[in-house]
Simulated assay, not measured.
Amino acid sequence: MEQWEYRTLKFFTKGFFSGGTLDIKEFDKELNGLGTSGWELVSCFDTNQHQGSSKEVICVFKRRK
């Protein structure tokens, strides 16, 4: 039976009134680094802050043990 390990990564957005801006360069850098280490992105979602703006972006990864 295959076994998996999981990792969760949380990114905080900037700008309360500007709608929660994500630093895309830093986001891509982190995702690519984990991909190089064998992690596969399983899910990515945001959490609400205020009137539909994003507070955090949460990414879940998995890889074989």
Rank of each mutant, 00 (worst) to 15 (best):
S54W: 12
G35S: 15
S18F: 12
N32I: 02
Q51W: 07
R63S: 02
T36I: 12
K25V: 14
L31R: 08
R7Q: 11
K25A: 15
L31W: 04
I58E: 04
R64N: 11
H50E: 10
L34A: 00
R63Q: 01
V60W: 00
E56Q: 10
R64C: 05
V42F: 05
T47M: 11
G20V: 04
D28V: 03
K55R: 07
T13R: 08
E26A: 15
G38L: 10
L34P: 01
G15E: 10
L9A: 10
G20C: 12
Y6P: 01
H50A: 11
S43H: 15
Y6E: 10
W4L: 01
I58D: 02
G38T: 05
S43P: 11
S43T: 11
R64P: 14
G52Y: 02
E5W: 00
K65I: 11
F17L: 13
M1Q: 14
V57M: 13
F45V: 13
T13P: 06
W39T: 00
E30T: 15
N32F: 03
G15P: 07
T36P: 05
G19C: 13
V60E: 01
K29R: 11
E2D: 14
N32T: 04
Q51E: 09
K10E: 11
G52D: 08
K62H: 00
T36Q: 15
T13N: 05
L22C: 08
E5L: 00
F27Q: 01
N48R: 01
R7M: 05
E5Y: 03
F61C: 08
T36Y: 03
V60F: 01
D46K: 05
G35R: 15
V57T: 06
G52L: 08
E56H: 09
G35L: 10
K55T: 07
W39C: 01
